[in-house]
């Protein structure tokens, strides 16, 4: 459960996020939808306590990222915008490293790697060095290492970016399985189909502000248009940044 109230963040004179309020419930997939540069990544970075907010409150399962950073990090699973892997380590070692940083017992780490490798279909490359991995393989490793500590809240920044159709389908299925097991999933995206196919609740962000929130159907009916795409354009008031 994530609650965000009146969040502000500026970089110098640039207001990246201003007065943002939304929530993401357990057992639901919440999509932050917005054009490139709308403030999605900055918002996520504040959620996983990489950046301190200038103003406003964040609560994740009651914890405040600015004060309980360490505690929050143990309950969060994050697939950030940068998916850098260690190319001289195998996929398994990459995941194990994060498990060790979470101070998990050795046995637990190995078991989780096995089960994640099965779920994410990584068996073929789990023991290969990640040098030269395809985009899809890299994303799978990035997800597995973010999930090795079985987080209650999952944050994903543009998770399907650069993936082919098959990988995208598989990933969506996996995200749905997280929701079914009661986790709270927040993903940022600028791809409309993604939101329509995946999200229970949508937060439309434009220019650092929340333009609208609701389910797909609610947003369509509120805008008086036929498709989520038209609704989106109507609600943010421009087509800027949608070409991708």
């Amino acid at each position: 459960m994530i609650e965000v109230r009146n969040l502000h963040k500026s970089f110098g004179k640039v207001k990246a996020v201003s007065d943002m309020t939304f929530e993401a419930r357990d057992g639901e997939i919440t999509g932050l939808l917005g054009p490139n540069g709308a403030g999605k990544t900055t918002t996520l970075r504040m959620l996983y306590s990489l950046l301190p907010p200038d103003e406003g409150d964040i609560r994740i399962d009651g914890l405040d990222p600015t004060r309980d950073a360490m505690a929050i990090k143990t309950t969060l699973g994050v697939v950030p915008d940068s998916r850098g892997l260690y190319t001289r380590l195998t996929a398994r070692e990459n995941i194990r490293y994060f498990g060790e940083l979470h101070n998990l017992p050795k046995q637990t780490i190995e078991e989780r790697i096995e089960s994640l490798a099965a779920t994410l279909d990584m068996g073929e490359f789990i023991d290969r060095r990640t040098e030269g991995f395809s985009q899809g393989q890299r994303v799978k490793v990035a997800i597995a290492r973010a999930m090795v500590h079985q987080p209650q809240t999952v944050l994903m920044d543009e998770p399907t970016n650069g993936l082919d159709v098959m990988s995208t389908r598989a990933l969506r299925e996996y995200i749905r399985s997280l929701k079914d097991s009661g986790q709270s999933v927040v993903l940022s995206t600028h791809i409309m189909q993604e939101v329509a196919a995946l999200c229970d609740r949508i937060v439309i962000i434009a220019k650092g502000k929340v333009a609208a929130t609701g389910t797909v159907d609610e947003l369509i009916s509120r805008s008086g248009r036929d498709t989520i795409e038209d609704a989106f354009v109507q609600l943010i008031g421009s087509e800027e940044g949608l070409m991708a």
Binding site: Y48, L50, M70, A71, K73, T74, L76, V78, P80, D81, S82, R83, G84, F98, L101, H102, N103, A142, R145, A146
Partner: peptide
């Protein structure tokens, strides 16, 4: 670096 710093 960013994924690394997200660890507790």
């Amino acid at each position: 670096l960013e994924p690394l710093l997200i660890n507790p």
